[in-house]
Nucleic acid binder design. Sequence first.
DNA 1: ACTAACTAGTAGCAAATGCAACTATCTGAC
DNA 2: GTCAGATAGTTGCATTTGCTACTAGTTAGT
Lengths: 161, 161
Amino acid sequence: MLDPNKNTIPRWVSLLYRYSQMYIGDRLKHFDIGRGQHIFLNSLYKEDGLTQEELSSYLKIDKGTTAKAIKKLEQQGYVTRKLRDDDKRSYHVFLTAKALEIREDVRAVLVEWRNILSQGFTEEEKQQAQLLLERMGTNAAHYIDTQKDQAGVCDESPHGR
Amino acid sequence: MLDPNKNTIPRWVSLLYRYSQMYIGDRLKHFDIGRGQHIFLNSLYKEDGLTQEELSSYLKIDKGTTAKAIKKLEQQGYVTRKLRDDDKRSYHVFLTAKALEIREDVRAVLVEWRNILSQGFTEEEKQQAQLLLERMGTNAAHYIDTQKDQAGVCDESPHGR
DNA sequence: ACTAACTAGTAGCAAATGCAACTATCTGAC
DNA sequence: GTCAGATAGTTGCATTTGCTACTAGTTAGT
């Protein structure tokens, strides 16, 4: 019999990801903000005026995906784009008044979700969880980025690191 | 109370999820196993002969998604389905010899990924990470399932779109 | 100044995913 | 038994996502 509680890290990660998308998507759908957009909106709430390239690299999301998400947010009136003066290839993405209006509501959803996830955690455990996730994320990002740089270079040693 | 610096758990989760999909998908693509299938294959390696419904509920993945993934695995010759005798609505999903042949390779990919994620972790930290993820996953599952049970009971506002 | 290499963003495709509507089977209340 | 409601699975649709190829603007080497 499969024991749902005993499993690998990748399975928990994928479960947490899908549930997060469900929860956040559900809580934001009355703003017409879909599952693909909230992550960008939240990044802009942290720092307005980022370029698409900066959003992509911060979130580690493909630039094509970013372009489509930003395009949709723009069509919905949540952001505007302004061509940079000093580099006509790139755009600054700015939040509109409409986006700023719902800022606290949107951020609150994330805080609520975080609280649901860490229910029953001590403050110390919350910090520990955040830290460990961060370290795993950094490890993953570092590995993937390294691989990408070496794409085409043969065989990797099974020793890793 | 909104704390702007404490809502990053969802961001790390989504990063870890996407990178996991990339890594595993990349390492399994020469078996023609796409990003959507490996999770089902691994569940069946744990326990063969599950029904689609059991797979869906174990992985918390939509039954439509499960149907499509299993269909693809069947077309590729990795699984066969057998109608249950005692319930003609459901199918047992069985691994084929072809799937069993690559079992260790496929499982090894998961182990490798876990090792990448926990690089630089002490044994204690690894266990801690696993445990905290598990607790967060359980919290999430519990919350979402509870919500689902209550859907339609009280609200059901016919307001969509 | 020229041009090759690089970079930001876009477009098109295919796969994956969730949801809702549907079919077929099963269960339980009567 | 019969029929309403639940359950397993399928299908169609819309959204999201990553990849690759492409355009246009920028940088650096000569």
